Amino acid sequence: MPLEPVIEIISILFIATLIDITIGEPPNRMHPVVMIGRIIKFFTKIIKNASRYRIGKETFEKVMGSILALGLTVMVGVVVYYVSTQSFYLLGTVFFVIVSSAILKTTFSIRAMDNHIREILVELDKNNLNNARTNLSKIVSRDTRNLSESRILSACIECVSESFVDGILSPLFYYGFLNIPGSMMYRTINTLDSMIAYKDDYHNKLGWMSAKLDTILNAIPARLSSVFMIASIMVCGQDWKNAIKIVKRDYQNTESFNAGIPMSIMAGGLNIQLEKIDHYKLGDMNEQITIQKCKTSLKITKIATLIFMISFLIPVIIILNYFNWWTILFGI
């Protein structure tokens, strides 16, 4: 049972987290997820153009969309695996750790969501509702033009809660089992979901497989998130008992199979009601939604991330090392 692989893999996690906290996102021209997004756009146009005059258009788009989702995900996994292994064999351990840390950082983001939300809160603090609505529109799909301050804050807290799963916990969860290829493959599917998995006529069939894969891959992390979020709510001195009550009662209120879990936990822990008009209500309006409540939600997700890493992710990496998984995976 060699110790070197586990030390390297935990070091990659630590360095990637440090990069995220101190530097943040790389420029778009160098961001792998942005490049993946461009590939998705390119093939989406090709598929839509090819299906325009085709008999059985819906079936064609469903099949081609499935090939795109599965093919791109596998391709990304293979490329990232090749790059990471070759960096080790050709340039040694130090370069392997540096390259892997840089790639891993692009699959999750703690700082970016924090920055987006705080920009909105600054505008609300100045009573600049229009600016707050504009900034909010960059991170949500709903119409923000006429939202009140409380609706804006609700949307912010919903984003913070949901992004804890698909922006932090899920990519790191798959890193814990499949290293960089697993984390990057998850991010590919999540990007496909965010770009083409809509229910409108244009995307409905094309993004069918992407939506299914995203739901499946987030199922376990979303449910695990409840443990770390409730523990964090306890640490922050919020109402953890109500969080458990609300998640049991309301987690199925959302159309999403997974999103209702972290959002309802946050609603219960903060003793507030989160609402997307004509879609769902989570929690009870025991207390008003305030800017401070939103800041507390950010704190909860950060502490939950730390608890997740220490109590789950690192132990998983160590246990897998005991069974020589990392040696088998990378052939080292």
Rank of each mutant, 00 (worst) to 15 (best):
N218W: 04
Y198I: 06
D214V: 00
R187T: 10
N146V: 09
A259F: 04
S163Y: 07
Y175H: 05
I152C: 03
C159R: 13
N253R: 13
K245N: 13
V247K: 06
M266I: 15
P181L: 07
V160T: 09
Y175G: 00
F177L: 13
A259L: 04
S264K: 09
L147N: 04
Y186L: 09
E162T: 07
Y251A: 14
N190G: 07
M266N: 05
K245F: 08
D200G: 10
R145F: 14
E162V: 02
G207M: 11
P181K: 03
L172V: 02
F164E: 06
A219N: 15
S150W: 00
D201C: 08
M229C: 02
L153D: 07
M234L: 15
V247I: 10
S232G: 06
I230M: 03
T191P: 09
T191M: 06
V165F: 00
R145P: 00
K241G: 09
K212E: 14
F177I: 12
W208E: 15
L192S: 11
D143E: 11
V227I: 15
S148T: 15
A231K: 02
I220Q: 08
F228P: 00
L206K: 08
C236R: 12
T188C: 10
A267M: 04
A211W: 02
A259E: 01
S161K: 04
D201Q: 14
D201H: 12
K199I: 04
Y186H: 07
V247A: 05
G176N: 06
S183D: 08
P221A: 08
I189Q: 05
I157Y: 05
K212I: 15
Q252H: 15
A211K: 09
H203D: 14
N204T: 14
G260H: 01
S226M: 15
D214I: 01
C236T: 12
S163E: 07
S194V: 08
T144F: 11
I244Y: 13
G260W: 02
L206V: 07
M185R: 03
F257E: 14
I157S: 06
L169M: 13
G268K: 03
Y251E: 14
K199C: 07
I261N: 04
M195Q: 10
D143N: 14
L213I: 09
I230S: 01
I180S: 00
R142A: 12
M195G: 03
A267C: 07
F164G: 05
E149Q: 14
D201L: 13
A197I: 12
T254Q: 02
G207T: 13
S148H: 09
N258D: 03
